[in-house]
């Protein structure tokens, strides 16, 4: 008689559950939160008038900088050489008076960044949507080609040996070699196909420098490249889903011990 083992495979289905709540972390390690709209301007933007209108509408963002793309190239030959420089206007970079918010208004879209200390999602989302509305008024994009929510987290670590205490899936040396890890850079892109999202995760370390300690970086970028409707209700629905995915990833990729550090 031949025995037969039947394995019933019941794959876990990834479902977004907006009713699931996540612990509030008073010392959350986020150094930057980003909402990125890729939405090409629907009209030709004149750099000077665009800047003037942005200044009028953003009195609370007193620091401005022109964003240029700088290209350089050279040719070398028997008849001599020449170097060519070219600068192309891309948009403007505005910074709030407290330096906590950065808004990039460009020909290809709008990016809102909140630098540390991170406050809370409600405040961040409201500010990003307010600035996005201004971008829409001035640039008249016809479609959102990409929408993304990115959180960059930095977690201090004393040594690389501590990584298994912090990460659920830390880098490891093959057991046959058992070598110490000196550096690592790990990127994984997950497909959330049922919802049309992707999750890009980067885990790496920033070596200590000038008295600073070693830092573990966990960069979570949730985005969709499917066209998103411009209506605010649809945007809010998408942002809520992306935020949930980001939270789920954060709490799934860090160990309970690591998360406990941020509760204090």
């Amino acid at each position: 008689m031949v025995g037969q083992i039947v394995r019933v495979i019941n794959p876990m289905v990834f479902r977004i559950d907006l009713n699931e709540s996540f612990a509030q972390l008073p010392s959350a390690p986020s150094v930057e939160a980003v909402i990125h709209w890729r939405a090409r301007a629907g009209r030709i933007l004149d750099p000077d008038s665009f800047r003037r209108l942005l200044i009028e509408k953003l009195p609370d963002y007193p620091f401005q900088q022109r964003q240029q793309e700088f290209r350089v190239g050279g040719e070398f030959g028997p008849e001599g050489s020449h170097v060519e420089h070219k600068q192309t206007w891309q948009g403007y970079h505005f910074q709030s008076s407290d330096n906590r918010y950065v808004a990039q208004f460009t020909r290809n879209g709008f990016v809102c960044s909140r630098l540390s200390p991170y406050e809370d999602w409600t405040t961040f989302e409201a500010e990003a949507l307010r600035l996005w509305t201004i971008y829409c008024e001035l640039a008249e994009p016809s479609e959102i080609q990409r929408l993304g929510v990115r959180f960059i987290n930095v977690i201090p670590a004393e040594t690389l040996d501590q990584l298994p205490d912090l990460l659920v899936a830390p880098p490891a040396s093959p057991s046959a070699m058992n070598l110490p890890i000196q550096e690592f850079m790990h990127q994984t892109r997950y497909a959330i196909t049922d919802y049309g999202y992707s999750l890009n995760v980067i885990q790496t370390i920033q070596p200590p420098s000038e008295g600073n300690e070693l830092k573990l970086i966990l960069d979570l970028d949730v985005y969709t490249e499917n066209a998103v409707e411009m209506a605010e209700s649809e945007l809010k629905r998408r942002l809520a889903e992306m935020r949930w995915i980001k939270n789920k990833a954060f709490f799934s990729m860090l160990t309970p011990d690591a998360i406990a550090r941020f509760r204090e």
Binding site: E32, V102, S113, R189, I202, I217, Y223
Partner: peptide
């Protein structure tokens, strides 16, 4: 190695961009 979106403003975002 996939492209990373060049949208961050913090020093850490710059560090990640260079490493990638």
């Amino acid at each position: 190695m996939a492209t990373i979106h060049d949208n961050g403003e913090s020093q850490t975002a710059g560090f990640i961009r260079h490493r990638m």
